[in-house]
């Protein structure tokens, strides 16, 4: 039960984190009416996950060999672009805030970027969604008397992830607007950096980028599969055994996106790989 709990919690955590942030974001800029974009995006992501799960089980041959990887890689890179764009937008928005609520609302209305938050919700849910669906489905398919604990654990994992997303929402509503924007912008950039590094790893596995030895191995210190390591993987892009592409992509992204998003207005946050701890 504990094992299946950890698996689904890990898979659903990133989606919960992103959903929690975008709901709170809309709440903070006084655009609760636009929640439907996020809800629709999330629901479509769930539907797409189920469709992908069914798709994977019904196709075979090259379509099964390569199809899911191509879709997954495309979704990952799309999510990186969306998150970067959103962070930039959010930052511009925050810079316009001078306690002037009316102006803030006006700008939010005129910028009309609601569909981005919907897409973020979609990619967030869809990214690990198909895997989670298949995992739970597999548990059910192999259900025997002893496996009900496993199924319970799996379902609990998804529920706890959802509760974490809600907790972010609840906490985010009460902190200062500026702090909220700053913290979530940094958080979203870290998530995007982690996604980019995952995407680069996928390209290496697909043979598009040359494969290579891991730069270092810090599994002994913190396994990226375990509880805490799993969270850091989703949150910061932590890798216990990163390839050169993964580590360089992660650090380079943070520098470039950091300058793009925080440039001039605030000090540039210098990216330092968290993984270097040894």
């Amino acid at each position: 039960m504990a094992a299946t709990f950890v698996v689904t919690l890990r898979e659903a955590f990133e989606a919960a984190l992103l959903l929690g942030i975008v709901y709170t974001f809309l709440d903070r800029i006084g655009a609760r009416a636009q929640w439907r974009y996020v809800t629709t995006g999330g629901a479509l992501g769930l539907l797409a996950s189920v469709a992908m799960g069914v798709g994977i089980t019904s196709v075979s041959g090259p379509l099964l060999d390569l199809g899911p990887d191509l879709i997954a890689t495309t979704v990952i890179f799309a999510a990186v672009v969306l998150l970067t764009w959103h962070s930039w937008w959010m930052r511009r928005h925050a810079s316009a805030l001078r306690g002037d609520v009316v102006r803030r609302l006006e700008e939010a209305r005129t910028s009309r970027r609601w569909w981005i938050v919907g897409l973020i919700a979609f990619t967030g849910v869809f990214r690990e969604g198909a895997e989670t669906v298949l995992f739970l489905w597999g548990l059910l398919a192999q259900a025997s008397v002893g496996s009900w604990a496993g199924i319970t654990g799996g379902v609990l994992g998804v529920l706890v992830a959802a509760a974490l997303g809600w907790a972010i929402f609840h906490g985010g509503r009460h902190i200062n607007v500026r702090t909220f924007f700053s913290v979530t912008t940094v958080l979203l950039l870290l998530v995007a950096a982690g996604l980019l590094s995952t995407g680069l790893g996928k390209l290496q596995a697909l043979g598009v980028l040359p494969a290579g030895e891991p730069l270092w191995n810090s599994t002994w210190l913190l396994d990226d599969r375990g509880g805490i390591g799993g969270f850091l993987t989703a949150l910061l892009g932590y890798r216990a055994r990163p390839s050169a592409f993964e580590a360089a992509g992660w650090a380079l992204y943070l520098v470039v996106a950091g300058i793009l998003v925080f440039g001039r207005r605030t000090r540039v946050r210098v990216a330092r790989p968290v993984e270097t701890a040894r």
């Binding site: 099964l64 790893g201 996928k202 216990a240 390839s243």
Partner: peptide
């Protein structure tokens, strides 16, 4: 993790 591969194989 060593090879950066994740691949679902349906039943």
């Amino acid at each position: 993790k060593d090879l950066r591969i994740e691949k679902v194989i349906p039943a």
